[in-house]
Design a protein around this nucleic acid. Sequence first.
RNA 1: GGGCGCUUAGCUCAGUUGGCUAGAGCGUCGCCCUUACAAGGCGGAUGUCACAGGUUCGAGUCCUGUAGCGCCCACCA
Length: 1022
Amino acid sequence: MPDELPKQFDHAQAQARWAPFWESRGYFHSDPDPSRQPYTIVIPPPNVTGALHLGHALNNTLQDIMIRSRRMQGFNALWMPGTDHAGIATQAVVERRLLQEEKQSRHDLGREELVRRIWEWKNQYEARILGQLKQMGCSCDWRRTRFTLDAQCARAVRHTFFRMFNDGLIYRGRRLVNWDMFLQTAVSDDEVFHETVKGHFWHFKYPVIDPQPGEPTHVTIATTRPETMLGDTAVAVHPDPAAALERAERELTDKLASAASKDRPEIEAQLADLRTRRETMLPLLEKLRDMALAGRMLRLPLVDREIPLVADEWAKPELGSGSVKITPAHDPNDYEVGKRQRLPMLNILNPDGTLNAAAEPYQGLKIMKARERVVADLDAAGLIVQIEDREIDLAHSDRSKTPIEPYLADQWFVRMDKLSQSAIDAVVDGRVKITPERYAKGYVDWLAEKRDWPVSRQLWWGHRIPIWYARGVTEAELKKTFAGRTDVAWRWDPENNQWLISAEEEDLAAGAIAGHTIEQDSDVLDTWFSSALWPHSTLGWPDKTPELAYYYPTNTLITSRGIITLWVARMVLAGLYNLGDVPFHDVFIHPTILDGFGETMSKSKGNGVDPLDVIAKFGADSLRFGLAYMATETQDVRMPVEFECPHCGKAVEQTQKTRALSRVSCTHCGKDFSTQWATKPDDMTLPRATVLSERFELARNFCNKLWNAARFTMMNLSGYTAGAVKNSALVIEDRWILSRLSTVTAQVTAALDSFKFAEAARMLYDFAWDEFCSFYVEMVKTRLQEESSRQVAQRVLAHVLDTLARLLHPMAPFITEEIWQRLAESAPARGLATPVAAAESVMVAAWPKADTSRQDAEIEARFAKFQALLAGLREVRSRQNIPPKTPIRFSVRSDAATRELLEPMGPYFNSMAGATIEAWSPEVTSPPRSANFTAADCEVFVDLAEHIDIDAEIARGEKEIEKLREQIAAKEKKLSNESFVSRAPADVVQKERESLKSLQDRLQSSTTALVEMKRAQASGER
RNA sequence: GGGCGCUUAGCUCAGUUGGCUAGAGCGUCGCCCUUACAAGGCGGAUGUCACAGGUUCGAGUCCUGUAGCGCCCACCA
């Protein structure tokens, strides 16, 4: 039924047909089966903040390639899917929309209602994300789909927290945190980004209380945030300014010594400045130091508070005035000074960013307003010394995009010393192998800092911290209440005079302790706390499930480099802590997808590309194969895109401008469209442009090529019978393609084993297109026409296509299934030595084994010579402008051995170049009017009789001779170099000699031919 | 500031342990709608392999430095 097969591969139809087929057969599902070896991957759960972009598509394609190939290799393959609740990120998105659309804050809604809204959002986006993965053909075990906030994951979180609490790994501490004033929560360091903004640097002075004679009456300090002076509790000066200045000078001198010449002037200027400073300021700084040691106090203006002058090394005499104001509750460095100097920590902020009662006269003002007032009041008091313009690198919350305020708050921490060490050890001793290796360094370095992990977040979306506070309760009451229960533990909190009670399984009721009311901590856990448990929580931990026993540790984790520390490291330490074993053995870090301007794709930048756009236009197989083809080891993937105007359908280029905008005017029809996919499908008023990249055309074209090769095969399989093929029945091109197939099978398998996806894709592309299609299929055509050769040709052809489909299936599942199923109609049993019935789906077919006995170097070398001669003949045709249908004749001069090898290919010179062999011997001479070339140890003369364009031939001949002379000169020079001949390996020298000889031969024959052509030209003109 | 990576044709990228006459796709030029495929076939043109040194018989490949780009980490009263 060849007519049924369209000339172009219909990807939409294939996807619609085979996705449900696979699902209905349950191929994606895996159950523990001790008789088979498991191969397991847990998905990096995508955040439910929005839809997936091409970065996710790459990540998941690579995982599916591994899963599908291992499944075909006989492993019991499980790909565990799911999504991440992404705590702050998701809450931020929902809150922002709430504010935009309903002008409400989360406090207007209340905790319960907000959380309900976020669940709604989650349900919508989870469905969308899973839908995207399914459309991509991801063979996840959907029945096992998990969510980091579902009941099973929640149990794992509770148990882990409880164990850590019991082991003393969890503690509560007052710390300065990054406070997001919009979301009113602490955000972790990695959720903070810095942005340079224009600001000022204010210098003002604090009066000294009762200055002694000879002492300054004021101390000058400087700040970019004047309002924080309200929270100052000291001013610091360096305890030994002379030594500090000396050290600074020494450092600069060292730097100058090793600096590049262009950097020198600046360093020299700094050095000069430093020396001046020592002369002019040192006496004052030393005086201030003495005053500090004497316990002298300053009067903090505006709030009229007495604060001490302290000596602390944090003050840098080489900077500013050399004195620095200390605001322990609102600056990380000042906080450290405050602890060292036992200063009060005065918090001047409310959680919403307004000033509190501690900043009495300014209470209730927002920070910016307070800043203006403070500056004005200081000015009025005559205390401002100077105001400089300055660019300030200001911390912003990644989630709300609003500035961060350092803020003192009670937080929960996980003690990291032992946990970090265990995760370092696992990588150092090879239990976890990171590929590419270079990423192991960052992982180890980060863990080696062993900084405690702040895990509490002042959010409503997430795992609520399983801690209850009890005041006024005796331990006897606790013991009595929880007698016999191992799932409740408590600890005394002396700072706050209360009991901390943790419960492992169930929440405690407010009235759990008779006569008292206990209260649960209102915070939730950092989202990475639950992500860290993902490889075992998804398998049922803390229960001892058959899944956990069978699939854990999993095999491979595939992720991007951005979360090696945040996620990978924490999974390793959590797995070791909870189960005593690593969560996976291999970690593969894949490249990052960048936009056309070299920036990472992200939803917030609006430069992301929806994989569904690519699938709609090019098909899922093209998306997958294209991504695999691009996924090389060191190079990130640059992806310039264009927009398809939804009005006129024309392509609109992406420019620096349009990247940032969501509304763009079509450069062709002028109408507006949106370039971003909606954060919610119904909130867009503009039609959205499909976002495309021509980088997928290669894969789309490849799929089409493959499809047509399959189509050709189907069209020529009538009368096919399965049966053993004897080696003696194979002709040269059969033996050649089988040799190549065997090599490619081995290479592709090895490449996938070492995560070299691009290499595997390239090898398959080249083999399928350049060898299978361009040569084998072309050559088999004549044999398919003849009864005597047809049967063997059909069997080999079917076998090669069958193997190719299997090798390509992990990268291009739909088209290979389509081909597999069609092939089964004409050729239900395939194979050369012993044909077997084809599997019911390529998905469950066996992975090809390389039959090394088929590898034949001699045949491949012989074939290469044939290809060289063929190319030469085709070039003559093209150069001489001879139409394809006009036959040509040629004769060859070569030795007998070469003739014996190549003359049997005569029919193929006919069918593939329209060229007939006229004579082939060592004595052949050039016909009077001919085009000639040298290839594969043969001199070839193409007899062109009447229609020769002799000028073209002469031009080519001259050019060729010139090139040959250059090459010969280079080789002669090399070979006359004494040290090359004596020091280079003998085989290299030998190869050079042979190469020179062959070049000289070619020069000889080209020169002869050129002379003859010139003679012919002269006679032709007469 | 510390670490890592990148720089090869107009564009996007390959290039294994140094042996190269430096490749592919897109684009471009010429010929062809040849019964698998015009999303195709055949052929052509296009490169100071970022720059400067060094090691070597030999460097796109190794070493040092410089410049530009990107990422991670730290920090900036």
